[in-house]
Design a binder for these strands. Structure first.
Lengths: 207, 207, 207, 207
DNA sequence: CATGAATGAGGGTTCATTCAT
DNA sequence: GATGAATGAACCCTCATTCAT
């Protein structure tokens, strides 16, 4: 399907991918301009369509690329033998930071996917979501040792709460830095993260 | 400014508002088509512009409409004398459900506002956000009685966590029903909600 | 045809006419907005169409109005017994100044007519131009006493030259005042006018 | 800026330029339709915007094109060493006829520029007018030998009169041929021109 | 008579996609 | 492979004209 694109120079491939991730993340599917993507990637518009046939195909390719990369990174970093929830959360954070290194806009892109409602792509997106549910990325929270949780609380819901909080914290941080125009402050983020972990440990775990 | 629109038949006004909320919520500012909004509202494109002059004005009108409606609903429902956090959370949930009744896409629209990046509107949005910060909607979490929290945990962060969880729960529910094509199941939502409240009470409050 | 309009209050009629003259003179036929005309005249858009049926009809009405008014003013002011060319030129100038008093934009409107190429109106305009050629307005230069001209020059061409110069002078003056944003300086204009008349008398007349 | 347009096939370029000159000359800036220009030039509307980005840019491009062409033609034809006014007038007429050959509507376009009132373009036009005042085109009437004029007449006003007459004659001729639907009759025009020159020589020069 | 809400065609402009080079 | 000229559909918006009130 995308063999033409897969066989080109690796550096150029990364350039195209990052350009497309950046523009889609910033503008969403409809408003993203193939012109801008081509310019950002330093290639011609014609070549972009030579590789991907259509904007939609490019978008879906990026989606698969993001899922695959995240899955592989998870496999590489996460220790599924470790059953403590907090260790897992830390590993998830590591995964994210590792990905951000190579593809600064991949996570931003991934976020927008969820809200993408465009009729042209959302149907295809839905088809794929099932496989993903079973993929490694979603195994992240499987097999947690729930015996460590206080017996008088609902461990599953507590896990959900913590994930949402993780998301919310990242979101809040991102929003703050966007508003101020500064870069993400990773050390400070880690510190904050640890404070929340402490809160959760105190509240949800047996003492 | 919007007097033409304000003086029309109430039913038609609601139709236009809900149509616009729906399309903007689903597509975002740029991708939303005035064509589609007019069609959805059952009026001509010309009339839409007769009312609002520009897409941008329509968007900003909706924004103000949403803020005003939420503020008023808050004033009507929330009891600021009640200093218990969980009671407040319940009242917030009531506000949301009350609004959803009349305007199914208003909260969805409100969510997208935050992520709206379009230069044409984000500047204006930013100007308005200050007033709002001081408005009733944001007083919701002021004046909480923190003495009820366990002394060994960080009450402020716990409050943040609960808000994120509330958001996440709503989001998850919405996503589920959108995927299945069903309407929001309010009673079930309330039940779920109560379970989370119980979890928080057990974990965060003094026993 | 325009009886509805002809039977209304005189003051309002003049208001509508002057508003329309102003807008058409300033913007030309196509770009002129009936909305703007109605606003300028202080009546509703609907009423404007009640009077005139269409923009085109309004335009042609104005055209006839201008021609009629000019013809009548000419009949009133010009002395066709006077056969000296320079006296005639002075009378023509008087006609123009008299008209400008009641209808500041009528002459400006008349100028644009000539350049109006819009397919919708130019055909009708052409039909009318013949009658006008024979009308009083164009008799202005008939019956001039050519015996006063030097025998060694072509009197007809000299007359043409003087008319073009009169036009050119008016145009130049108008352009200058438009550029500077000032009003027409009538006394100065008359002075200039006399200087050109002196030049012509010296050059074209027997001494 | 206009490199895309400058690099295309010469014949097509001329087609586009002449189409745009024609439509702008006939309708003025606002009323001119890019649709009509594209149709007249035999290209798609999209391509027109590919070349020029906006109607305004196209208009200003034409303006510069006209100025440049006129300037160059003047440099080619006019002999600035010749100080006799009538020889100059002849050369000016030659310039006009030469330009009309390649661009039948360029002079008509140039006329409309002067009256162009549209806010979008008139500001830019004003900026450019200064350079032009100093350009070759306006040097045309500099350095005239006024000693040949009769001492009892105002040479400067006489020069103005002759220019207005030249303008008027061209205008009259153009109007006549437009009304009759015929092409410009160059030999007859030259003959007429000579008659006026003779008139001026007799009237304004020392004998 | 008078209003202005309502329509829809047409305006300038953008952009995904095609295709000759 | 690689370019960018070329197309046309769809975009937001304006405006002459109609019509219910």
């Amino acid at each position: 399907m995308f063999d033409k694109f897969l066989n080109i120079d690796e550096e150029k491939r990364q350039r195209v991918i990052n350009a497309a991730l950046k523009v889609f993340a910033a503008r969403g599917y409809v408003a993203a301009s193939t012109n801008e993507i081509a310019r950002e990637a330093g290639i011609s518009k014609g070549l972009l369509f030579h590789y991907f046939t259509s904007k939609k195909d490019l978008y879906l390719y990026l989606y698969d690329y993001a899922v695959t990369l995240l899955t592989e990174t998870v496999e590489r970093i996460v220790d599924f033998g470790e059953r403590d929830y907090f260790e897992r959360l830390k590993q998830i954070a590591s995964v994210k930071l590792s990905v951000l290194n190579e593809h600064p806009d991949l996570l931003g892109f991934q976020k927008t996917i969820f809200f993408e409602d465009n009729a042209e792509v959302s149907a295809e997106l839905k088809t794929r979501s099932k496989e993903i549910a079973e993929s490694a990325y979603y195994r992240l929270l499987a097999d947690i040792d729930k015996s460590k949780f206080r017996p008088d609380i609902d461990a599953d819901r507590a896990i959900g709460v913590m994930l949402w909080a993780l998301e919310g914290m990242g979101e809040a941080e991102r929003a703050k830095h966007k508003a101020l125009g500064t870069e993400l402050d990773v050390p400070h983020l880690m510190e904050e993260f640890d404070k929340y972990l402490a809160l959760f440990r105190t509240s949800f775990y047996r003492q």
